[in-house]
Amino acid sequence: MNKIFHTERLTIRCPQTGDGKAVFEATMDSLDELREFPASLPWATEVPSVDLSETFCRSGSENFAARRDFPFLMLLRDTSTVIGCGGIHRPVWSHAAFDIGWWGRTPYLGQGLITEGVQTLLRFAFADLRARRVQALVDERNKKSRRLCERVGLTLEERPHDCGTDIDAKHRNIKIYSSTNM
Rank of each mutant, 00 (worst) to 15 (best):
M1V: 07
K3C: 09
I4R: 12
R9Q: 03
R9T: 04
L10N: 01
L10W: 01
T11G: 09
I12E: 02
I12W: 02
R13K: 08
C14L: 02
P15N: 03
Q16G: 09
Q16L: 14
Q16D: 13
T17F: 14
G18S: 11
D19I: 05
K21Q: 12
A22T: 06
A22D: 05
E25W: 04
T27C: 10
D29I: 13
S30M: 14
S30T: 08
L31C: 06
D32T: 12
R35T: 01
R35A: 02
E36A: 10
E36M: 14
F37L: 06
P38S: 04
A39Q: 09
A44H: 12
A44P: 14
V47P: 13
P48C: 11
P48A: 15
S49P: 04
D51Q: 13
S53K: 00
C57W: 00
C57D: 00
C57E: 00
S59A: 15
G60H: 00
S61C: 14
E62Y: 01
E62D: 02
F64I: 00
A66I: 06
R67Y: 11
R68G: 08
P71M: 03
P71E: 02
F72D: 01
L73M: 03
M74Q: 03
L75G: 02
L75N: 06
L76Q: 05
R77L: 11
T81C: 12
V82N: 01
G84L: 03
G84W: 02
G86A: 03
G86Q: 02
G87Y: 05
G87K: 03
R90S: 08
R90K: 09
P91L: 04
H95D: 07
H95Y: 11
H95G: 07
A97Q: 08
D99Q: 11
D99H: 11
D99C: 14
I100M: 10
I100N: 04
G101K: 10
W102A: 14
W102G: 09
G104K: 06
T106P: 11
T106Q: 10
P107C: 02
P107L: 02
G110Y: 05
G112S: 12
L113I: 05
L113H: 04
T115M: 02
T115V: 05
T115K: 01
E116S: 04
G117F: 01
G117M: 01
G117Q: 01
T120M: 01
L121P: 00
L121F: 03
F124V: 07
F124W: 15
A127V: 13
D128T: 15
L129W: 12
L129T: 03
R132L: 15
A136I: 09
L137Y: 09
D139H: 07
D139C: 06
R141Q: 14
R141L: 08
K144R: 15
S145C: 06
S145G: 11
R146E: 07
R146P: 06
R147N: 10
R147I: 11
R147M: 15
C149V: 04
G153H: 00
E158P: 11
P160Y: 10
C163I: 05
G164P: 07
T165R: 13
D166H: 04
D168F: 13
D168E: 15
A169E: 13
H171A: 09
R172P: 14
R172W: 08
K175D: 15
Y177P: 13
S178D: 07
T180A: 15
